[in-house]
Amino acid sequence: MSARALLLLLLASWALSEAGEAHNAQKEVDTAEEMAVFKDFMVTFNRSYGSDKELQQRFEIFQQNLARARHLQATDQGTAQYGVTEFSDFTEEEFLGLQRSPKTMPSQTLPRVFNERLQKTCDWRKLGVANNVKHQGLNCRSCWAFAAASNIDSLWAIAGYPRNVSVQELIDCDTCASRDGCNGAWVWDAFMTVLQRGGLSSANDYPYKGKKGTCKKRKGDAVAWIHDFAMLEKNETAMAEYVAFKGPITVTINKTLLQNYKHGIAKPPASQCSSVSEDHTVLLVGYGVLRYKRIPYWILQNSWGPTWGEMGYFRMHRGSNTCGIAKYPVTAILDIATDARCPQ
């Protein structure tokens, strides 16, 4: 080997060594910055861990979720922002929980019978409907009961009789007695319970505990009831018509992206949010269009408290079956005449 070749080889080795040291140094800086963010997260969400080992494990999970949030941010086709949330130290398995397919489904599908022109926007919150965002807690998968209760409350409020029905009664008195409602269920299970019990108590008389208890005898008369429930057409135009002319409905979606969702209109690619793995039920309260980008969206109420997302709500792209939103559109039916229309 010539002296020149030897010199070039030594210079190349030195450059690689310098690059490696720079990469390691940057990695240490990134880790230190992420640890600072993690400590802020622990304070914000009142987290503490039983040992240094568990703290390190949760920090590594936190780092993985930050990386996932950055990937979602890079691939989202809407306006959504992703980042640190209450669930940033959860593994994907802890957040998603067990998924299962429904054993029974509503047999009735409501036909489209609306002859009026569909309004461009709709937001029932402007009429004081569905404004009470609640928190199901971190240890009870009761989204199905919260969505059903909010659906019923909304329909009664539209009729002019505001209600706040008991979520806990749905969990304790679920018609499938062998199941723990904190392990998940389907929204039509809740509606079947309401029909069989002849209504629900108020949340004040039967408060939420965040765990399954013994079904209690009602104090006095039911404060709200329903006459039936039904599946809507699995079509987003039909869903918008029903929401505009009748009121909020429940939908069941794949909640994967909600772990890192902050705000904005979520429109992930199908690879990031499958439309065939629905596992979280929420209340659909309206729809709109982001004018400057002409992005149509749904407005949805979650049950993770008012500090999550957009004051307890979130928006998803409308018209592309985002995260399977059109698969299970279900609503309670209340036969009380009303002239109310969804505010634009």
Rank of each mutant, 00 (worst) to 15 (best):
M1P: 13
A5M: 11
L6M: 13
A15V: 14
G20C: 09
H23I: 10
N24M: 12
Q26P: 02
A32S: 14
E33L: 15
E34V: 05
M42N: 09
R47E: 08
S48E: 12
L55P: 03
I61Q: 14
A69I: 04
Q73Y: 02
T85Q: 04
R100N: 05
V113A: 08
F114T: 09
N115G: 11
R117I: 08
K120R: 15
T121H: 11
D123S: 08
K126A: 08
L127R: 10
A130S: 14
N131L: 14
C143E: 03
I158R: 01
G160W: 08
N164W: 08
L170Q: 03
C176S: 13
S178R: 13
G181S: 06
T193E: 01
Q196M: 11
G198T: 07
G198R: 08
A203D: 15
N204Y: 13
D205H: 13
K212W: 02
A222G: 10
F229L: 07
A230K: 12
M231P: 06
E236W: 00
A240H: 00
K246E: 14
K246A: 01
L257F: 14
Q272K: 14
S277N: 12
D279K: 06
D279L: 06
V282S: 03
G288S: 06
L290E: 15
Y297G: 02
Q301K: 15
W308P: 06
E310M: 14
R318N: 04
I325E: 02
Y328W: 14
T331A: 05
I336S: 09
